[in-house]
Every structure is written in structure tokens, then in C-alpha cells.
Simulated scan of single mutants.
Amino acid sequence: MSEKLRQHIEEIVTLTDEEFEHVLSHFTYREFLKNQYVIQEGDYVRNDYFVLSGLLKSWSIDDKGKAHIVLFATENWWISDPQAFHNQTKSTLNVDCLEDSKTLAISLENREKLCTEMRKMEYFFRRKTTAGYIASQNRILSLISFNAKERYEYLQQQYPGLLQRVPKSLIASYLGITRETLSRLTSQQP
């Protein structure tokens, strides 16, 4: 399983076997069951999670009780509440599992230590953080600029195969549209 993390890291930097063992020693293997919370709103966020297998979502509930999905994390994605993780504050997001999931967790302390010890890993995490920032910006722009059909098509690009793994009600929540609108969009697909 740890080979997935190594392959993921080596998309950006190359590591020797010794370097990778050192990197891996900063992570903790964690398994979660379907529907299990990884983070609950109001919890202090201790870890960032690399998804080895499974499917997780981060989400929030507004004042009217409506759930809003911020992110789906499939294999080789990272998930946490970034603001709470980096600031070591209470979470404003929930993270739970849509499938049984296996992860590698890293604490902020271990991440900072690893970045201090290995310039390669500092570079890796900087690139991943930048990519996450860009993805968040693109998601915001899609929500304010795209119509429902364009958001649906963008979702298909970002998450190939996700539609077969996630209930349509959650897809609709992620897109900011009604379940009925999503049904119309999916019925128009060839």
C-alpha cells in the first residue's frame, strides 16, 4: 500500500529507498469504515490524509441545514480541513467516508519536521499545496461562472468514474443544483 504514496510523491520528486522509508516513518496508517467520520465540525484537525483506497467527502452544513459538498477524495487525493489543519484550529468542515477507506495520515508537526529534514519533501508539499489552491480556485470559478451543464461536464473531467460510485443526491450537492436538474443532465448524456 505504501507504494501508492511513493508513486504519488515521485510524480514530483525522486526518492531513494532510504529516503522513502524516512518519509513513510512520518505517516500513520489509518482505516475507516463507510459512513465513519474522519473529521467532525468543531474537532481539532490533527492530520492530513492521503487516500490509498476508498472514497471520502468533505462537507459543511449551512444555517438552513443544507449540506454542501466541498470535495470528493478518491485514490491518490489528499483530504482534510486545510484551514483547521494548518492553523491547528477547530474544523469548520466534516470529512466522512462514502466507502471503506485506507489512508496514510500525517500530522502538521510531522509534515513540518519532514519538510525541514528533506528539501525534496518541502518542494513536494509546496507543489501539492499550490495544486490544491488552484483546484479550489477553479472550483469556485466554475460555481460562479458555469451553468449546470458546464459544471456537470467539469465534474466528469475532474473525477472520472465518480458518478458510478456516488449517489446522485451527493453529486447534485457538489454541483450546487437540484437532484431533478442532475437527472435531466444525466438523461441527456449519450
Rank of each mutant, 00 (worst) to 15 (best):
D81M: 02
L56A: 02
W78F: 12
N147G: 15
E99M: 06
S58I: 05
L93W: 03
K120H: 13
S80C: 07
L141F: 13
T103E: 00
Y152N: 03
K120D: 05
K66I: 13
Y133E: 06
T116I: 11
M118D: 02
L71D: 08
I134Y: 11
R126Y: 12
N87R: 10
K57R: 15
D81N: 11
C97V: 06
P160M: 08
L108Q: 07
N94S: 08
R127Y: 12
Y159F: 11
E109W: 09
T130Q: 15
L155G: 11
V70Y: 02
E122D: 15
L93H: 09
I79L: 09
P160G: 09
W77E: 05
R111M: 15
Q164P: 00
A148P: 02
G132I: 09
T103K: 00
R165V: 02
K66S: 08
L162T: 03
T103V: 09
R127N: 10
N87V: 01
I140D: 02
P82K: 08
L55T: 02
I106R: 00
K57Q: 12
P160N: 12
L93N: 06
G161N: 06
A67Q: 12
C97R: 07
W59V: 04
L143K: 13
Y159H: 07
R119V: 11
I61P: 06
I69P: 03
M118C: 01
C115L: 04
T116H: 14
W78I: 04
F85D: 00
R126C: 07
H68C: 10
Q157L: 14
T89F: 05
Y159I: 02
K90H: 11
M121Y: 10
D96Q: 09
D62W: 03
A84N: 07
G161E: 01
S136L: 13
E153C: 08
E122M: 09
E99C: 07
D63F: 10
W59E: 11
Q88L: 09
